[in-house]
Design a binder for these strands. Structure first.
Lengths: 121, 121
DNA sequence: CTGATACTGAACCATACGGTTCAGTATTGC
DNA sequence: GCAATACTGAACCGTATGGTTCAGTATCAG
């Protein structure tokens, strides 16, 4: 759907939308690990963890390399900067709107005060 | 799953993982809109757009209010700050690791240079 | 009252997700 | 060579997602 570019955001945010995967990222930030390590740490089958790692790899958040029979997983180059930037840019638009809104609210409040009564909710 | 807290991150990141929904957020940042407005702008049925708006509302990213027969949608208070903070905190751990890695790489490169040849890949 | 507008809910559909089991294959260690 | 280890792939399962249609309900305009 939507020709709109941003496939990269889709996969990156989707990858972050799972607690296990965020946990894996935090774990990898503390050091590389194998699929077995991660599966053990998150009490999951190897196959299950493999899928999570694949999702993270597909999003470019981790890179893996097979060394002998073990797959070494480590953090990828942080493309998450783009996501943070998106949120940040967005937050600015947002703030601008709320600054405007704040003035309106302040005005309403002062009116209420002048009328000497408050309306809950 | 995972008892692990972070339900809020799950819904927020999941909400952001869809291009249409990110588009809706950007649209709302430029001004409030009704379901009909949004459905028109993103060429989608009312029902389809309603679902997207519900997801965004569930994530606390937008708030809606029914005024007469039209539902007015606007941005919610920006709880996205927490998401940005998560990414930021994470990015710091990440950088720390890459700073260490950078030194190793720099050393390897200087060795390569001393050997007088480069290995493409 | 009547018709148009704006949403809402239920049902359905195809596909994706998070997880499992089971049956391999490739490597390592003795 | 043989067993154990470490992963991998296919198949399956229940649930969620992104979307639709269809049949309402509520509100507004005249």
């Amino acid at each position: 759907m939507v020709q709109y570019q941003g496939m990269h955001f889709n996969t990156a945010f989707a990858a972050l939308a799972d607690a296990t995967r965020r946990g894996v990222l935090e774990q990898l930030a503390r050091g590389d690990a194998s699929i077995t390590d991660l599966a053990g740490r998150f009490e999951m089958t190897l196959t299950g963890m493999k899928k999570h790692v694949s999702v993270l790899e597909g999003a470019g958040l981790v890179v893996t390399e097979k060394v002998g029979r073990v797959r070494r997983c480590r953090l990828g180059v942080c493309r998450l900067e783009e996501e943070a930037a998106w949120i940040e840019r967005f937050h600015q638009l947002w703030s601008a709107r709320f600054d405007a809104l704040d003035r309106v609210i302040a005005e309403l409040k002062s009116k209420e005060r002048r009328h000497g009564r408050r309306k809950g909710k």
